[in-house]
């Protein structure tokens, strides 16, 4: 049986961590920040890649279309 009780008397107590709050919370804060960056960086990269691809595709399609018209004109 796990005995589970909140170890602190109040929220302020929880934040203070009996004087060690600065260390504990900076450590957790920076870790969360780095983890978020780690997780979202590849997602942003993917999104950027796909949007560039989409634009290239559009440009290519336009090219092909205009070529077709040219072909028609020369014929």
């Amino acid at each position: 049986m796990i005995s589970m009780s909140f170890q602190f008397d109040s929220m302020a107590d929880f934040l203070a961590m009996s004087g060690h709050g600065v260390y504990v919370w900076t450590a957790y804060g920076i870790t969360v920040l780095v983890l978020v960056v780690l997780a979202f960086r590849p997602l942003l990269k993917q999104r950027r890649f796909l949007s560039i691809q989409r634009e290239q595709n559009r440009a290519q399609n336009n090219d092909r279309d205009s070529n077709r018209i040219d072909d028609g004109a020369t014929k």
């Binding site: 589970m4 009780s5 909140f6 170890q7 602190f8 929880f14 961590m17 009996s18 004087g19 060690h20 709050g21 260390y23 504990v24 957790y28």
Partner: peptide
Amino acid sequence: GLGFAPQDARQGNS
């Protein structure tokens, strides 16, 4: 870990 684990006897909350 932050709220419910017991305090360490030597190191306190750090």
